[in-house]
Deep mutational scan, measured.
Amino acid sequence: ETKSLTLVLHRDSGSLGFNIIGGRPSVDNHDGSSSEGIFVSKIVDSGPAAKEGGLQIHDRIIEVNGRDLSRATHDQAVEAFKTAKEPIVVQVLRR
Rank of each mutant, 00 (worst) to 15 (best):
S34N: 15
D68L: 02
L93I: 15
K85Y: 05
L9F: 09
T73M: 03
K51L: 09
D12C: 07
A84Q: 03
H10K: 15
I20V: 06
K85G: 06
R24P: 08
A84S: 05
A72G: 05
N29K: 15
A50F: 07
R11K: 11
R94M: 00
L55V: 06
L16S: 14
R60F: 01
L7W: 03
I62A: 03
F39V: 05
H58T: 05
H10L: 06
S70L: 09
S4F: 15
L9V: 07
D59W: 01
S13E: 12
V44P: 06
S13F: 08
G32C: 08
S26A: 12
I62D: 00
T2A: 06
S34L: 10
V44I: 11
K3D: 14
K42G: 10
I21G: 09
G14P: 05
I57Q: 07
R11C: 05
D59E: 02
L69K: 00
S33F: 09
G17T: 03
S35I: 12
G47N: 11
A84G: 02
I62R: 02
D45Y: 06
I61F: 04
R67D: 05
P25T: 09
G53S: 08
A84N: 01
H58A: 13
K42P: 03
F39Y: 14
L93M: 12
F18P: 00
G66F: 00
G66M: 02
T2S: 12
I21C: 10
L9C: 06
F18N: 00
V92Y: 01
V27C: 12
K51Q: 12
H30E: 14
G54Q: 09
T83A: 11
F39P: 01
S13K: 09
L55P: 04
L69I: 11
H30F: 14
I38L: 05
I20C: 05
H30G: 10
S15W: 06
I57N: 06
V8C: 12
E52S: 13
H10G: 07
E63Y: 07
R60A: 03
L55C: 01
R95S: 13
H30N: 10
S70E: 06
E1F: 13
P87E: 03
G47W: 06
D68K: 03
S4C: 13
K51R: 11
E86N: 08
G66V: 00
N29I: 07
R24T: 12
D28S: 12
G37V: 01
V44W: 12
G32A: 10
G54K: 13
S26K: 12
D28P: 09
L7R: 04
E63R: 11
I38D: 00
S34A: 13
G14D: 14
N65C: 04
K42D: 15
S13W: 05
S13I: 06
E63P: 00
L5I: 14
Q91L: 03
A84C: 06
A50Y: 07
E1W: 05
A49P: 08
G22T: 11
V8I: 14
R94Y: 01
R24N: 13
D12W: 05
E36D: 10
L69Q: 01
G17Q: 04
S4E: 09
N19K: 11
L69P: 01
L9I: 13
